[in-house]
């Protein structure tokens, strides 16, 4: 049984009523609010990523058409890179989405999600700048918020997701995350 040593001698002045004391309050601190607020961000962004990834994996041929339409890869190696991307992006979305939902390796997942979204936004802006009429394929056949064709709305939608990912990156997994269970001091 351990005992905590008390350096103060018995009866020593402890400050009493004169000592500055933080007012006891039931109002949660800003840190707690952030840790609670990050939970819906994780669930929404993670859920969207898992959904988008699964839809693409169910029909890789259609997603390959979408990747090809962006004309990002140079001729020659383009076909190989397109096929690798056809599988790499959806799997990245599923894995990152699942990690965000679980709150496992949250900051790393949020960092990669941020980088992925920056890449997506860059690709979309490049398509708009080149005047290509491309169907996004971001959520398969489902027009989530924006129409099928890529445009300003697609950039705005991805930017909102980028802000969410950046917020998770800054705050961490917060409450109800596996990171917190593994290491309570983990932020």
């Amino acid at each position: 049984m351990s005992t905590t040593p008390n350096p103060r001698p018995a009866g020593a002045y402890t400050g009493g009523d004169l000592a500055p004391r933080s007012a006891p309050s039931n109002v949660p601190g800003p840190r707690i609010l952030l840790e609670l607020g990050v939970i819906p961000l994780r669930l929404i962004l993670g859920g969207l990523f898992v959904f988008a990834g699964v839809i693409k994996l169910l029909d890789p041929q259609q997603f390959a058409f979408s990747v090809s339409a962006f004309r990002i890869f140079p001729p020659g190696v383009g076909d190989h890179l397109t096929i690798v991307s056809t599988f790499a992006f959806p799997w990245a979305e599923v894995i990152l989405g699942a990690l965000l939902i679980l709150g496992l390796w949250t900051r790393a997942s949020a960092l990669l999600t941020t980088l992925l979204l920056i890449g997506f936004i860059g690709a979309i802006i490049s398509v708009i700048a080149r005047g290509l009429a491309v169907e996004c394929g971001c959520f398969g056949k489902i027009d989530f918020i924006c129409g099928a064709k890529v445009g300003a709305c697609t950039v705005a939608r991805n930017s909102v997701m980028l802000v969410m990912a950046a917020a998770i990156l800054a705050i961490g997994g917060g409450r109800l995350s596996l990171d917190r269970r593994r290491s309570p001091s983990h932020r």
Binding site: L57, P60, A64, S68, V84, F87, L99, A108, S109
Partner: peptide, 27 residues
């Protein structure tokens, strides 16, 4: 680690699909 796992899974999936009867075809 996440990138490594993701790429491994994606390459394995790609290999399985491309070796199947209906591989991904491009235009």
């Amino acid at each position: 680690a996440i990138v490594g796992v993701g790429l491994t899974v994606a390459l394995a999936h790609s290999w399985v699909v491309q070796a199947s009867e209906r591989p991904i075809r491009l235009t």
